[in-house]
């Protein structure tokens, strides 16, 4: 079996608010394998967003070890962390986070700008990805000319354009109606079937139910894992 995409071992994160230590994560261990499909469930304040930021390399743990794409984040400088995010992780946010006044194609191509890919190739790859998420006819539209579902598909295409091994989706259906939400989840699952690991952060039990396994968080701790032991039965095996 290939190396896991992300390995968190007894990870904690404490915020310092005006000299008062506020623990958000209090020792969490979690492995995301290649091709995994995990839902992280919890109420607001449970620490699930903090965990997601850590898994995505946007933040660093204050305790424990976190290995993303085979690299211990404690040893990485901020530019190296940026490179890691660019190469290993694809983010999908609840509020899409698309650049306004920028076409779907250029939004999707954005991560490639920071990889130093030339303009022509960027645009070709972005068009390819938009085609793949079913938006081949929306390439030159701007976010305000698209529906919520279409915007989230653009965001997914952007997350995929660098060929990441993990998609981190933070409440990806939170701003969508249920039908559109379903189709976005269908898209994520079809990508998962192609070998990309998907980590879903949600408070919606129905959404979480579709994942291969669930991790429930409360007060900065994992309180249950389903199935127990959390070894994926049907790992896609990565690539």
């Amino acid at each position: 079996m290939s190396t896991p995409a992300i390995v968190a071992t007894d990870v904690s994160r404490t915020y310092d608010l005006d000299g008062v230590s506020v623990p958000a994560l209090r020792g969490v261990s979690l492995t995301v394998d290649q091709g995994d499909y995990v839902a992280i469930v919890g109420t607001s304040g449970s620490g699930k967003s903090t965990l997601m930021h850590l898994l995505g390399g946007l933040d660093r743990p204050t305790g424990g070890t976190l290995v993303i794409g085979g690299r211990d984040v404690a040893t990485l400088s901020p530019p190296e962390m940026a490179k890691l995010r660019n190469e290993v992780i694809g983010f999908v946010f609840q509020s899409f986070h698309l650049l306004a006044r920028t076409t779907a194609r250029d939004n999707v191509a954005l991560p490639l700008v920071y990889r130093g890919v030339g303009r022509r190739e960027r645009r070709a790859r972005a068009a390819e990805l938009l085609e793949r998420v079913g938006l081949g006819h929306r390439i030159d539209h701007r976010p305000n000319q698209m529906s919520g579902g279409e915007q989230q598909r653009v965001a997914i295409a952007r997350a995929l354009v660098t060929g990441p091994s993990v998609l981190l989706a933070d409440e990806p259906t939170g701003n969508l109606d249920s039908v559109t939400g379903q189709s976005v989840l269908d898209l994520l699952e079809s990508l998962n079937a192609e070998g990309v690991a998907v980590v879903l952060v949600t408070h919606d039990a129905e959404v979480a139910g579709r994942a291969r396994r669930r991790i429930v968080m409360r007060d900065g701790l994992i309180v249950s894992a389903d199935p127990p032991g959390a070894v994926p039965a049907l790992s896609g095996g990565g690539s």
């Binding site: 946007l58 940026a82 490179k83 660019n86 660098t162």
Partner: peptide, 8 residues
Amino acid sequence: LRKAVGAR
């Protein structure tokens, strides 16, 4: 967002 997708 730019930082999330890899801007240093």
